[in-house]
């Protein structure tokens, strides 16, 4: 076999591979080891699964894990449903359609910290614009971010506000690929608007749904900045998620515990996303 130099040399991959390996792969693999230790960056002491045991024991750590799941599933579900409805609305040829798309999408591009601070002010229990408005029509405004039961859901609403534009945009791109013929055929068959939505749009826009669900779930599970800017995980630990737990343990110097949180988050993402991907792909074959 005669070999000749390829015009596509492997060393093209090398610079990227070095950066990625050193700063992403090495820490990721190292995290499995460090999560089994008590660690202060200078010395490590092997303690087996103690860090993980603590995650199962401490109520605030358990709550952080549960909150992570609530946050991810709630934001993902609402973004998917509202995103699709908005996309259908914003492709139906209504007046000011282009401007509306811009308006809905713009929050995606804005600093999360800025959004978080702004909404924290808008949701202020006594002076906030939202509660003042509610009061003016005679409704008692709740303590959006000060009520432990409500805080997490208030952040979820803001995350939906900030992120629904991306879901909408992805759905708009997906809708654009559906041939108008399907709708005309359905109309011939006497389908109503609602029937067309459920029988034509929803099944045919599936690739976009897969993207929206996957992206928003991953994003939701990893979410940190918005929660941190709005509540710091409070009141108490009521709106803590894994990512904020990881940061708090890091700040407190519990590096091993913090890293165990990382591994748990990592496992959670794997356990949710991989089966989901397999399921999405299997459904595709059936179609």
């Amino acid at each position: 076999m005669v070999t000749q130099k390829s015009p596509y040399p492997y060393w093209f991959v090398l610079p990227a591979a070095i950066v990625f390996t050193v700063l992403f792969l090495v820490p990721t693999f190292a995290s499995f080891w460090f999560s089994l230790t008590r660690w202060d960056l200078f010395s490590t002491q092997f303690i087996g699964l103690e860090n993980y045991a603590q995650f199962l024991r401490e109520p605030f750590l358990i709550q952080g894990t549960i909150n992570t799941l609530i946050f991810a599933f709630a934001t993902s579900a609402t973004k998917t449903v509202i995103g699709l409805l908005l996309a259908v609305l914003l492709t139906s040829g209504i007046w000011a359609q282009g401007f509306l798309r811009t308006v809905v999408f713009f929050p995606v591009l804005v600093s999360t910290i800025g959004i978080g601070i702004t909404f924290a002010a808008l949701m202020h229990p006594t002076n906030g614009v939202i509660n003042v408005a509610l009061a003016s029509i005679g409704l008692p405004g709740p303590g959006w971010l000060t009520d432990p039961v409500l805080a997490l859901y208030s952040v979820i609403i803001v995350d939906l506000w900030k992120g629904v534009g991306l879901a909408t945009l992805i759905y708009i791109a997906g809708l654009a690929t559906i041939s108008q013929d399907y709708y005309e055929a359905a109309r011939m068959d006497g389908a109503t608007r609602t029937q067309m939505f459920f029988r034509v749009t929803v099944p045919l826009v599936r690739p976009a749904t897969v993207t929206v669900v996957t992206l928003s779930l991953i994003g939701g599970l990893r979410s940190f900045d918005l929660i941190w800017a709005m509540t710091r995980g409070g009141p108490g630990f009521s709106s803590d998620v894994l990512a904020s737990v990881i940061y708090k343990q890091y700040q407190a110097g519990f590096y091993g515990l913090s890293t165990a949180g990382n591994v748990i988050l990592f496992a959670l993402i794997g356990l949710i996303i991989l089966p989901l991907t397999v399921w999405f792909n299997r459904r595709e074959v059936d179609l």
């Binding site: 990625f20 990592f266 794997g270």
Partner: peptide, 28 residues
């Protein structure tokens, strides 16, 4: 055959949250 490996890393890079403290350790 390497392409499969690279794709695996690409997907990992999209999905996996960075392990922060170990990264600090590497950076240090």
């Amino acid at each position: 055959p390497w392409n499969k490996v690279i794709y695996g890393f690409v997907l990992a890079g999209l999905m996996i949250p960075p392990a922060v403290v170990p990264t600090i350790w590497v950076l240090q």
